[in-house]
Computed example of a mutant assay.
Amino acid sequence: MTDTPIAEMSFEAAMKALESVVGQLERGDVELEASIALYERGAELKKHCEKKLGEAQEKVAAITLDSDGNPAGLTPVEGL
């Protein structure tokens, strides 16, 4: 596990950490208490990834295209 707080992780780092958590849980060789902690971390990582994806979708949706299909400008997205 990394010491980086989840809130500071990039999407890619959080996905990699989540994949690691899932792998450990699937192997089933982790003690019960550690499994619970891993599950909780996995839930937080999933939540963080969903948030990052939502932010990216909002940014992409804010781009408008002109009649030639070129970016015409950006529409401000609330909260960004």
Results as ranks from 00 to 15, higher is better:
R27F: 04
A13S: 11
A17T: 09
I63Y: 02
G28S: 03
L80Y: 14
D68G: 02
P71Q: 09
E58Q: 14
A56E: 08
Q57C: 08
G79V: 07
E19A: 10
T4F: 00
G54S: 12
P76A: 02
T64K: 12
H48D: 04
E50V: 09
E58I: 08
E26A: 11
S35V: 01
D68S: 10
M1C: 01
E19C: 05
E78G: 08
L65V: 13
A7F: 07
G69M: 06
C49Q: 03
L32Q: 12
M15T: 15
V21M: 01
I6H: 02
M15A: 11
A43G: 01
L45Y: 06
P5A: 02
M15C: 13
E12G: 06
K59G: 00
F11H: 11
L18V: 02
V30T: 13
K51E: 14
I36L: 14
A14N: 03
A13K: 13
G73N: 13
A13C: 03
A14M: 09
A56N: 04
S20K: 13
L25Q: 00
E50P: 03
E12D: 12
L53S: 07
D29W: 07
A17L: 12
E31T: 13
S35C: 07
G23L: 04
L18K: 14
A61S: 11
L45I: 09
E55K: 11
V60W: 05
E78H: 04
S20I: 08
I63N: 02
T2P: 10
D68Q: 12
H48W: 13
A7Y: 06
A72E: 13
L53I: 11
K47F: 09
A43S: 06
D3W: 00
L65A: 06
A43T: 05
S10W: 07
L45K: 06
N70M: 14
A61Y: 05
E31M: 09
P5C: 03
G69P: 06
A7N: 08
A43I: 07
K59S: 09
E44I: 04
E33Y: 05
M9F: 06
M1W: 00
K46R: 15
I6W: 05
V22Y: 00
I63Q: 02
K46Y: 10
A37R: 15
T2Y: 03
G79R: 03
L65T: 11
A62T: 04
K52I: 10
S10A: 11
G54K: 14
K52N: 04
E78S: 13
V21G: 00
K51P: 01
A37M: 11
T2C: 01
D66H: 06
T75K: 15
G23F: 07
F11E: 10
A13E: 15
A7M: 04
S67E: 14
E50M: 12
A37L: 15
